[in-house]
Amino acid sequence: MKGIIFALLGGAFITLQGVANARISQDIGTWQAATITQLTGFIVAFIILMFVKERGEWKKFKQVNPLYMLGGAFAAIIIFSNVTAIQHIGVTLSISAIMIAQLSITFIIDINGWFGLDRKKMRAPQFIGIGLMIAGVVILGF
């Protein structure tokens, strides 16, 4: 039950984040919104980090491929495109298209075993699932 509540809240927060960014962008500009949300998020995460057991673990960053450590930088483009999408096509259609793209790219990476992931076989349910989701977006958008 607790897990379900966390998952529900997680989903609600993801949507809220997109909406809040879109709202803030209207007032102060998209790059400004991205810079401020990432900066304040960083400050809070850093403060929390100081109080958790894991705090010494950052030394292990040295063992990580530097490419993977740059992942966070995508946020600038993610926030910009997310905000632009919400302003043009609304929250529901944006979130739907984002989810489909996300599942599809993850699926393609899994199949090919890119980035050192275990290769996975393609299965019918995943194609049917993506097909259904695209059908849903078509119903929403047209």
């Binding site: 990580v64 491929n65 490419l67 993977y68 450590m69 740059l70 992942g71 966070g72 995508f74 946020a75 483009i77 993610i78 495109s81 997310n82 632009t84 999408a85 302003q87 043009h88 096509i89 259609l93 944006s94 298209a97 984002i98 989810m99 489909i100 793209a101 996300q102 599942l103 599809s104 790219i105 993850t106 990476i109 980035f115 050192g116 992931l117 958008g141």
Partner: peptide, 21 residues
């Protein structure tokens, strides 16, 4: 709007993999 959403979603997918690494 759709193209922007697809760019955002693809980057989120890649970022999640990088972050989990």
């Amino acid at each position: 709007g759709l193209i922007m959403a697809i760019i955002a979603g693809s980057l989120v997918g890649i970022q999640n993999i990088f972050n989990s690494k």
